[in-house]
Write a protein that binds this DNA or RNA. Structure first.
Lengths: 114, 114
DNA sequence: CATAAGTGCAACCTCCTGGTTGCCTTTATC
DNA sequence: GATAAAGGCAACCAGGAGGTTGCACTTATG
């Protein structure tokens, strides 16, 4: 939980930032599309959406700023690609929360059983 | 990815809903506190916050509606507890995204190596 | 019983978010 | 070179999110 955190946020701040980016069904569907490893242009990502290209563009920039996606400009179009690192960091964060829960459970169990 | 999904949302909708609930640092810190397994009242959760009790209440209701937390009224106070099931479902969702990515990677590798 | 503690409810406010439209710039393509 | 395709930028708008204040209600407590 640090390599992508360029803004020197604390772990929860970073996680909240990424969660906020994931907390929109349009953005989440963009992530799902790109997680197949293929690279897509803005027009390509907008084609089967009822939203405007500008709306998709805004969502992509939010995803990029959160570190979930990366873009490179090739020719007249900018290609967007999934960036799995940040997802991994967020998974690790959720693991830490779950681990605290599991530890609390086992402490409780030990207390009950003695 | 279904047991907590009472509103019959699709998996991505459910996940986006939970992510949106997690995408606020105040709510995330509430989750962190409660993930130690202890039960806390609204006043107890508001005591070391610069926010109003009402603000904390609103956040708790959002967390509860997302299935991340559960409340039971005991006496004059309502006790909030962490509910780990939903976190588990979201972790599973992130796993599915990562798995699609991994599959895409290995297909690419197989293609390159032949 | 009087009072304090813990909440719930509703109104209100400000600012951000998601979305649109319009227009201009840059690349391809015929 | 003219035209089409892809995108960037800025202004604008409605609605929701986060937060506050005020007050009423319920449950403990001295």
């Amino acid at each position: 939980m640090s390599s992508n955190n360029t803004a020197h946020e604390t772990a929860p701040q970073f996680a909240a930032h990424v969660f906020a980016a994931l907390g929109d069904h349009t953005r989440l569907s963009l992530i799902e599309k790109l997680s197949d490893g293929q690279t897509r242009s803005i027009a390509g990502l907008s084609v089967d959406s009822h939203l405007t290209r500008q709306a998709i563009t805004k969502h992509l920039h939010i995803l990029e700023e959160a570190g979930l996606v990366i873009s490179t400009k090739v020719g007249r179009e900018s290609q967007f690609a999934f960036k799995p690192d940040t997802i991994e960091e967020v998974r690790a964060y959720l693991d830490s929360v779950s681990r605290q829960w599991d530890d609390a459970l086992s402490r409780l169990r030990a207390f009950v059983e003695r």
